[in-house]
Simulated assay, not measured.
Amino acid sequence: MNVFLIDDDELSTFLTRHWLVREGLCEEVQTFISAEEALTSLEQCPDYLLPQVIFLDLNMPVMSGWEFLDALSPQAARLKSRTQIYILTSSLDLNDEMRSKDYDLVAAFIHKPIKSEDIQLIRFHTGIYN
């Protein structure tokens, strides 16, 4: 499974990558410390190499997770059948969780740190069992 992790926090990235690999969701995680880098990579990515799952932090400098989601809207049709986005955040603001439901590409809102149960739900939603 092709997985993108967009998060500017190195410790969070390390822990998330560790859990994803440990739980067998994927063998490798492509990480981005900025949403801009991830956006560029997605724009240049051929359809057959699009990630099945994107984990997205909300609070990042320069381009937030919300701005990233807005910037994806021209590509929504291309991504919709291939990619699910999981917001992975430390935000406890209920408004953030409610706002995430306004984005069709967002499959779920997950609080950091990611847990085994979260990964099992992602497996169920994606239908991918490694």
Rank of each mutant, 00 (worst) to 15 (best):
E27T: 13
A76W: 03
I110W: 06
D8F: 09
T13L: 15
V53M: 02
E43M: 05
D8V: 01
V62C: 11
A108W: 05
T89E: 09
R123L: 02
Y48D: 12
H18R: 15
W19I: 15
S41D: 04
V3L: 08
S100G: 03
H111G: 05
T89H: 07
L50D: 00
K112S: 10
D96N: 06
T16K: 10
I54Q: 10
F32R: 11
V106H: 08
D8I: 07
I33R: 15
P61S: 06
L20H: 07
H111R: 13
I114T: 08
P51M: 06
E10K: 15
Q120W: 05
M60A: 09
I114D: 03
D57T: 05
L105V: 02
W19L: 15
S64D: 04
S73G: 02
D104H: 07
M1G: 09
D47H: 00
Q75M: 14
I33N: 15
Y48H: 11
D96A: 08
F124I: 09
K112H: 08
M1C: 12
I110V: 14
V53C: 00
S12D: 15
Q84R: 10
N2P: 11
F55A: 04
E36N: 14
V3P: 01
I6R: 13
V21G: 02
D104F: 06
Y129T: 04
F4D: 08
L72A: 03
H18C: 10
D102G: 09
S12I: 10
L121Q: 14
E117V: 05
W19E: 15
I6F: 13
I114A: 12
E28H: 10
A107L: 04
L121F: 04
L15N: 15
S64I: 04
F14C: 13
I87E: 12
L94C: 03
V53H: 01
M63D: 10
E37F: 07
T83A: 08
G24R: 06
D118L: 00
C26L: 11
F14V: 09
A107M: 06
A77C: 01
V3W: 07
I122M: 10
V53P: 00
E97W: 07
A107I: 00
P113W: 06
H125W: 11
A108F: 11
D9H: 14
T40Q: 11
E43I: 00
K112C: 10
I110M: 10
I128C: 01
Y48I: 05
Q44W: 04
S34C: 11
D96R: 00
E43C: 05
V106T: 01
L20V: 13
T126K: 01
A35F: 10
K112I: 00
L69M: 05
G127A: 00
W19Q: 15
